[in-house]
Design a protein around this nucleic acid. Sequence first.
DNA 1: TTGTAAGCGTTATCAT
DNA 2: ATGATAACGCTTACAA
Lengths: 357, 357
Amino acid sequence: MVKHSQATTIRDVARQARVSAATVSRYLNRSAPVAAETGQRIQQAMRELGYSPRLAARALATHKTYTVGVISNALNYAFFGPLLRGMDEVLREQEYRLLMATCIAGQDRGNLPFGPHNTDGVVVFANTVDDEQLIEWHAVGFPCVLLYRLPPGDLSFPCVNVENHAAVRQLTEHLIEAHGRRRIAFIHAPDYHQDDLQREAGYREALRRYGLPYDAALVLRGDYRREQASRAIEAFLARVLSDCDAVVAGDDDLALTVLGALYRAGVNVPEQVAVVGFDDQHFAASLVPPLTTVRAPTETVGRVAARQVLRLIRGEAVERETLLPTDLVLRRSCGCAGQSLRKGLSESYHPQMLVGR
Amino acid sequence: MVKHSQATTIRDVARQARVSAATVSRYLNRSAPVAAETGQRIQQAMRELGYSPRLAARALATHKTYTVGVISNALNYAFFGPLLRGMDEVLREQEYRLLMATCIAGQDRGNLPFGPHNTDGVVVFANTVDDEQLIEWHAVGFPCVLLYRLPPGDLSFPCVNVENHAAVRQLTEHLIEAHGRRRIAFIHAPDYHQDDLQREAGYREALRRYGLPYDAALVLRGDYRREQASRAIEAFLARVLSDCDAVVAGDDDLALTVLGALYRAGVNVPEQVAVVGFDDQHFAASLVPPLTTVRAPTETVGRVAARQVLRLIRGEAVERETLLPTDLVLRRSCGCAGQSLRKGLSESYHPQMLVGR
DNA sequence: TTGTAAGCGTTATCAT
DNA sequence: ATGATAACGCTTACAA
């Protein structure tokens, strides 16, 4: 027995329209034909009473929430903007909504923000949720899409990734080949995601192909928090600067920090040290010098992920892994001419002009 | 009559623990004392069955969703990261979750993503939701906090703002006074928020105080979409560059674009043209040259907003308007020395050294 | 085409 | 301290 200051319910509308609640429901959900004239009355009654259905009740009855959750460890990277936007757009079109929450892997054990009890499905960023939980979700068939990572074991979660290895390999090769760099440093992202490891692998592969030695001293491991990136990078550069002519940063945020540090150190980019990043975030083109980087279709990643959860939710077939292609965007910071160039990974090695910027 | 592949319910737990559902509920919510030993059995039963309460049912019974919605027109600015993060942190501590959705003012008339039917309260970004809707929410006492704007009419919605006018005034005065700039351009944000207007007012006030003429030709109105900022700004600068020695940008994103455009135009910053922004986004310090700007406590804005909705939800007293102070951050782009300086608005006009960066 | 009534999973009132 | 049971607002099978 619960008492509440009543908001208007479907019964109020029904009474006002002189029909049963069932009919109103049917009209609302188009779940069965309703006489045109009856529909008019219902329509009007709803307007008059300012009715809006209580989603909790609907969810309880139907076991559908029309809500998808996105779980990430942090949402303060600029990087998340396009990602969320992409997801939101697609979900919105389909009348779903996006619920987001952060979650520290390990820490929030068994107390995740989302699950079958409050969402129809989730999108999981990188290694935010631990394997044990994923396995459980898999067992109960809870719709779940993985972002920037592969499923643990042989679980059949669909996942969305971008091409990392080949992109960074080509970028590094470009530094070697086109700009004659030999002592190339690599800066890991603060967290060892699969992405990050693949990028380093691409970097190493490029060195190998050109017979350059891999020097651990030129690699900054990601043992720092994102907020401390500036200090960590500054210290790292102080060590290697005298013996280094290029820096491959794990992502644009890091490249930005590198640029700042080099500026303060009075080092010219790209003359003395070339700098490249990954992502092609919105600021990359406006940096001084404009940043050579890899264009990752982050918004598309979000869109694809959203589409996949929706398919999962509807019981439709999904692709197991979606690997989105990336492009090299050659700007000034690697040593290229001022004009922006763009190179598709799948294309032959002849850069084509990038229209506009 | 609905049939579903049953997930475990509170009754299953009750049966397993040989108690009634009511007792399990009481144990779960600490709403009444439960014998220690009974608690043990319930605890164990829940674990064994992997029980987690269905939130929709709970929401239906209690009329509480433990969810707060944030409505904005777009969430792809880097700017939103800290904002969301701040809100999320506070809500999370209080076991609430954050639901986010975009909404185009005017377009989504009467079909908002959030409302009393699915959330306990909302945070509204700038003018995303139209006054009519706000008035309705106000009438029914729906918890709602406004961000970066004042309430329409004399409505008593709490709102959270940052100090815009004085900050931009001082920043502009700094350009005039410390760096002798006379022909200062102003670039509006793509959407005329209250923030934006206050910033322009600050700019004009500074000119007035120093007897400089206001020249409409030096002001770029925000009649462009964010994605087209680059072109709009480039065109604008092409017009005014010959007669302009400083640019006050409406925010850091715009300042970034200005920097990029000036670089391409071969203009030296700050020697030929000084550039300043607003927000002190994470990239500002790393730009070349480092950006002089106004530090806006965006994450704090989020935190305060979240706290206010929670107070509203709990029926506690709230501040009508929270005006958060901003600080000038003097870096190189205005013409100051390389070392970063910071100036509190409330302090006297003697810049103090900024610890670290 | 419409109405009746059961049921969704939880909380809360009233007993005991 | 615990148990029965109504109620939350909606959907849907079944009947008419």
